[in-house]
Design a protein around this nucleic acid. Structure first.
Lengths: 133, 133
DNA sequence: CGATGAGTTGACAATCGTTCTCAACTAGAC
DNA sequence: GTCTAGTTGAGAACGATTGTCAACTCATCG
């Protein structure tokens, strides 16, 4: 928990493998799915290591971490600017969206109630054009 | 999963106990905390029953279900209108907030990307006035 | 009142995602 | 090559949640 960050973070085969995997898909995947993917791909990485790596990346803000309805953690590489997700509830297709509107609104609402040091989590769910057909 | 709803839902001591417990606090609590609370209060209800009851209530929209950072489910009774939560990240104090701004924004963004049948989840975290001191 | 049957309960086992443990194993610095 | 701190993987451990199933509770009907 002491993300004192001083950690050097060595570039190992395993870390590279996980990062490569993340680069190979555009939707959110669970740690286990990524672990399986690596195994099938012939670049096996221990499950614990996958979890550890994903955790580090998430801490560093290099991947997004979401929770499915039943609390499972799912990951996806992401751009480093603050943004939200528009996720298709049937096929999982994800679009990163952003806009000052919500940012402003949440800050205002929080201030109004005396809350400080504000952050927020917003996910939008819908049915994408393809799935509607 | 077939929430055909036809279920009568008998008002038992246990169900009443859980509902009473929910009425006795204003922040989000985990199923286990509620289970403990009931035990201490001398109105013991089996853990499985607490989970089952909370689930039913959540399905019926009578309680809000949130996920903590580490994926644990936490519950709280709620008003039945659509709203969001402003949660103090240190003491858990919660304020229900709502406003047309976000609703409008999310719908617009979704439409812009061809997404239909939109819903969204927004939680705001911050430090409340009391905790800042 | 007693029989009946569907809904409900609770102790406990079972799942399943995730984290921990720890000895063996690097990657780089000297 | 030697050292040392960081890293890895197999498997155990954990913790929240769900499943199992026999006992129980109620409302209803005779």
């Amino acid at each position: 928990m002491t993300s004192t960050d001083g950690a050097p973070l060595r570039p190992t085969r395993q870390r590279r493998a996980v990062i490569d995997a993340l680069a190979s898909f555009d939707d959110f995947r669970s740690a286990q799915e990524i672990h399986d993917l690596l195994g099938r791909r012939g670049d096996p990485v221990g499950l614990a290591t996958v979890y550890r790596t994903l955790q580090r990346l998430a801490d560093a803000g290099e991947v997004d971490l979401l929770r499915t309805e039943d609390g499972e953690a799912i990951y996806r590489r992401c751009s480093d600017t603050h943004h939200h997700h528009l996720v298709c509830r049937s096929c999982g297709a994800t679009v990163e969206v952003e806009g000052p509107t919500v940012e402003r609104w949440t800050r205002a609402i929080a201030a109004e109630h005396g809350y400080d040091d504000v952050s927020h989590a917003l996910e939008i769910f819908g049915t994408c054009a393809a799935c509607r057909a």
